[in-house]
Amino acid sequence: MFYPNSPQTSPQLTQIPYGQQYAMMQRQIQQPYHPFATTEPQARLYPYHYQGPIQQEQGGFITQQSTAASPQYVQMRVTPVDQSIMSGYPNQTANGSSSSSFNYNIHPQQQQQQQQQQQQLRHHAMPVGSVPLQDDRYRKQLIVNYLAPDVTSTDLHELFSRFGELDGARIIYDKQTNMSKGYGFVYFCHAEDAKEAVERMSGYEFHGKWLKVGYSTNPLNIVPSNSSPYVHAGSRGAAG
């Protein structure tokens, strides 16, 4: 039997160049792979992502010199942007860049009308829970959420009447099932009393439920100042 490094198959040491006398086997001759043993700084910083320098080929596509990437890492192929796409944008300079302001050559009167329309939209648009300043009635009506099913309009009136005089209180019921929808409205005579009720009743436990109280901004629920107070009856038909 002959071994790869046996004296019968191995040459004389004098015939082997210096430095390879003890590297006779194939696994010894093959050098191990060192990912950080390279002179390129990109490979030292990113050993798993770097795959060699990027070269520009004919046709405008950018390719990489090395083989496919590892399945664990996804390499994105980048193509140059066609400058003709950006030619339609206004205020574009000769080098292809555009300024931040756009001039669509709008007539001054049209621009003024658009600004007025935007101001009107901001004036009428009102986020949930906010209180408008032009109508004091919005500051007097509250919406009470997360009410228990057994709470009546009379219970709601008695709960909030300790903060001040009320114009009314009612629970909203479903017309088909005649069941409470879980929320109601309270109408105060003074805005200061309503503000105190919002601050003190939010998070209050009532009939096993934690109440959420806020201003009601729905104009359909506003009680006119010259109208008669609501009837605080315990029956659902009268309260709904």
Rank of each mutant, 00 (worst) to 15 (best):
residue 2 F to G: 14
residue 5 N to G: 04
residue 6 S to P: 02
residue 6 S to D: 04
residue 7 P to E: 15
residue 8 Q to W: 00
residue 9 T to R: 05
residue 9 T to M: 15
residue 11 P to A: 14
residue 11 P to E: 07
residue 13 L to Y: 13
residue 13 L to S: 07
residue 13 L to Q: 13
residue 17 P to C: 15
residue 19 G to N: 14
residue 20 Q to F: 14
residue 22 Y to E: 09
residue 22 Y to K: 05
residue 23 A to V: 06
residue 23 A to P: 06
residue 23 A to R: 01
residue 26 Q to D: 15
residue 27 R to A: 08
residue 28 Q to Y: 15
residue 35 P to A: 02
residue 36 F to Q: 12
residue 37 A to Q: 03
residue 37 A to W: 15
residue 40 E to A: 09
residue 41 P to F: 15
residue 44 R to C: 09
residue 46 Y to L: 03
residue 48 Y to S: 05
residue 50 Y to R: 05
residue 50 Y to V: 10
residue 53 P to G: 12
residue 53 P to Q: 09
residue 55 Q to G: 06
residue 56 Q to I: 10
residue 57 E to M: 00
residue 57 E to N: 05
residue 57 E to Q: 09
residue 59 G to N: 05
residue 59 G to C: 14
residue 60 G to N: 10
residue 60 G to V: 14
residue 61 F to S: 04
residue 61 F to N: 12
residue 63 T to W: 12
residue 70 S to C: 08
residue 70 S to A: 10
residue 72 Q to E: 15
residue 72 Q to K: 02
residue 76 M to K: 05
residue 80 P to W: 14
residue 81 V to P: 02
residue 82 D to E: 09
residue 83 Q to Y: 14
residue 84 S to I: 11
residue 85 I to R: 04
residue 88 G to C: 11
residue 90 P to Q: 03
residue 91 N to A: 04
residue 93 T to N: 05
residue 94 A to V: 06
residue 95 N to I: 06
residue 98 S to C: 15
residue 100 S to Y: 15
residue 102 F to I: 02
residue 103 N to P: 04
residue 104 Y to I: 02
residue 105 N to R: 10
residue 106 I to Y: 07
residue 106 I to M: 06
residue 106 I to F: 07
residue 106 I to D: 13
residue 106 I to A: 14
residue 106 I to P: 12
residue 107 H to C: 07
residue 112 Q to N: 07
residue 112 Q to D: 03
residue 115 Q to H: 13
residue 116 Q to P: 07
residue 117 Q to D: 09
residue 117 Q to T: 12
residue 122 R to I: 06
residue 123 H to R: 01
residue 124 H to G: 07
residue 125 A to G: 03
residue 131 V to F: 13
residue 132 P to S: 08
residue 132 P to V: 07
residue 132 P to L: 05
residue 133 L to H: 00
residue 134 Q to N: 01
residue 134 Q to Y: 15
residue 134 Q to A: 07
residue 135 D to E: 08
residue 135 D to R: 03
residue 136 D to E: 14
residue 137 R to E: 07
residue 138 Y to R: 03
residue 141 Q to W: 01
residue 142 L to K: 01
residue 143 I to F: 01
residue 146 Y to A: 00
residue 147 L to I: 10
residue 147 L to G: 05
residue 147 L to V: 10
residue 151 V to F: 02
residue 151 V to E: 13
residue 152 T to G: 09
residue 153 S to C: 02
residue 153 S to T: 11
residue 155 D to F: 00
residue 156 L to I: 04
residue 156 L to A: 09
residue 157 H to P: 08
residue 158 E to P: 14
residue 159 L to W: 01
residue 160 F to A: 01
residue 162 R to M: 02
residue 165 E to D: 14
residue 166 L to T: 00
residue 168 G to N: 01
residue 168 G to H: 04
residue 169 A to G: 01
residue 169 A to M: 15
residue 169 A to H: 02
residue 172 I to W: 07
residue 175 K to C: 03
residue 176 Q to Y: 10
residue 180 S to M: 03
residue 181 K to G: 08
residue 182 G to H: 07
residue 185 F to I: 08
residue 185 F to Y: 03
residue 187 Y to K: 05
residue 190 H to C: 08
residue 190 H to K: 09
residue 191 A to M: 04
residue 192 E to G: 08
residue 196 E to D: 08
residue 196 E to F: 03
residue 197 A to Y: 11
residue 197 A to D: 15
residue 198 V to D: 11
residue 200 R to T: 10
residue 200 R to M: 14
residue 202 S to H: 04
residue 202 S to K: 11
residue 203 G to H: 12
residue 204 Y to W: 00
residue 204 Y to M: 14
residue 204 Y to K: 05
residue 205 E to K: 12
residue 209 K to N: 09
residue 209 K to C: 06
residue 213 V to N: 09
residue 213 V to I: 06
residue 213 V to M: 07
residue 214 G to A: 05
residue 216 S to W: 13
residue 216 S to K: 07
residue 217 T to L: 02
residue 218 N to M: 02
residue 222 I to R: 10
residue 227 S to F: 04
residue 229 P to R: 08
residue 235 S to K: 13
residue 235 S to F: 11
residue 236 R to N: 00
residue 236 R to V: 04
residue 239 A to L: 10
residue 240 G to A: 07
